[in-house]
Design a binder for these strands. Structure first.
Lengths: 253, 253
DNA sequence: GAGTGGTCTAGACCACATC
DNA sequence: ATGTGGTCTAGACCACTCA
């Protein structure tokens, strides 16, 4: 039975947490990607799945709810769970998607240029954004993202030092998020994102390859930890013609 | 006990569905807004709530999960459910927010100008967007949204006639969404939103009050019904300086 | 009428935080 | 040691779809 497999995975060396419904979610997702459960067909019912995975129906439902929230299936009452067309949804979705993930999924050549990097004391505006006072120590990182030879995105990151003791230029050249989640195991919980269009600053013009654009798309990110404290403020400044944002919203309530 | 109250509400004339956890969600939300559960304090525990509402803990958890997904509380393991600062989250969040809701929440004077309205057969491009062929009948609605005397947003809506038999100019001048959900009780299920910046068309320049802008922010919306069929495609074209998008993303998995 | 997903229950054990 | 939220179970009834 499949349950044995989960047992082994869960109790193996690499896994730290048991999470049957997440394991089942991963397995089902694989089957959708491989076409075992093909687009526009109905998946096995919740009762069938709970037998197949030797678990309770509520646990299967948690796994299916995850799939539905991420847009892989659509549950239809009285009929079953419809597998949606994955190929149409492969683009990463709103939320905490990092630059590296984005590039990987698009398969493009990219490079990161670190312009500025160090510890500062925030000015009053930044202190307010971060919800601290101006005596706090803050990491400041200014990076340009180069895609196919053009500097497209200017990322300005500010982290609270008390949450991130050490940061190096090498880390900034790769993915800060990967470092934070992988090395520090910081628990990023939720983020507020705000998208507006602003007029270009001289900094934008110096650090990016703009084509006489007057404007720039600014994505502001406020990232919170699991205890609900704010620990990062980021501005991601995108050239107009290369900006794209996709959001997959599911009706709640 | 409170449960009696729910019993009455649920079995009353106006309610059609019993949904204990949604009722509890509404009650708790009210208490948060009223300050009974104040910002930065810990709510009653799940066990306490399940006694208070005379229900099982899993049902309380469903209500709390709703609150957390919408950003009103933050659950912290071992500690409790932290009430977040509602005043900072009052702006409508990503998803299926209609123009009317948005204006209402901002309290601004606004007007809708219907430029074009009628039944068409889609051209090949639109047919592809909607996932039908060119023989299908489609409602086409072109509206400008005027805020404080300036035409800021150009909305281009396309609905499949087979899902929306009747549409009038009056409905378009108000909220189509309210009509669809209120009158037709259409079950809108999920939407994909895409935000890009495009060059202005002559149509944009004619129908909006642009200030020599070369570009315009385009929000493309693909709206699906509960049976996963696509039934609406919308383009919302915003003047650069008035565009704002807010997204509240919660970490999943 | 049989099968589906949606809701609900009354337990249970766990990891974690606090005292 | 106690209390918290996170997970899981084995039932149950409901509204809905479809033959």
């Amino acid at each position: 039975m499949l349950c044995e497999k989960y047992g082994r995975i869960l109790n193996g060396d690499t896994m730290t947490k048991s999470n049957k419904y997440k394991q089942i979610y991963q397995e089902l997702l694989e089957k959708i990607h491989k076409g075992t459960y093909s687009a526009n067909s109905i998946m096995p019912s919740e009762n069938e799945l709970s037998e197949m995975y030797d678990t309770s129906r509520e646990t299967i439902r948690k796994a299916l709810t995850l799939l539905a929230e991420k847009g892989y299936i659509q549950k239809i009452r009285g009929k079953g769970s419809l597998v949606l067309d994955v190929s149409k949804l492969s683009f990463p979705v709103s939320g905490l998607v990092s630059f590296k993930e984005l590039q990987r999924s698009l398969g493009r050549e990219s490079r990161t240029i670190v312009y500025d990097f160090g510890l500062i004391h925030p000015d009053p505006w930044l202190a307010k954004q971060l919800g601290v006072d101006t005596t706090e120590e803050v990491w400041k990182v200014i990076r340009a993202r180069e895609i196919q030879g053009e500097r497209i995105i200017l990322d300005k990151d500010y982290f609270l030092r008390k949450h991130v003791p050490l940061l190096t230029k090498e880390i900034c050249e790769n993915s800060i998020y990967e470092y934070l989640e992988g090395e520090l195991e910081l628990a990023i919980s939720f983020a507020k994102k705000e998208i507006v269009v602003e007029e270009c600053t001289t900094e934008d013009q110096e650090l990016l390859d703009l084509h006489n654009d007057q404007h720039i798309v600014v994505v502001k990110n406020y990232v919170h930890l699991e205890d609900a404290t704010l620990f990062q403020y980021t501005e991601s400044r995108h050239r107009l013609d290369k900006f794209r944002f996709i959001d997959f919203a599911r009706r709640k309530q």
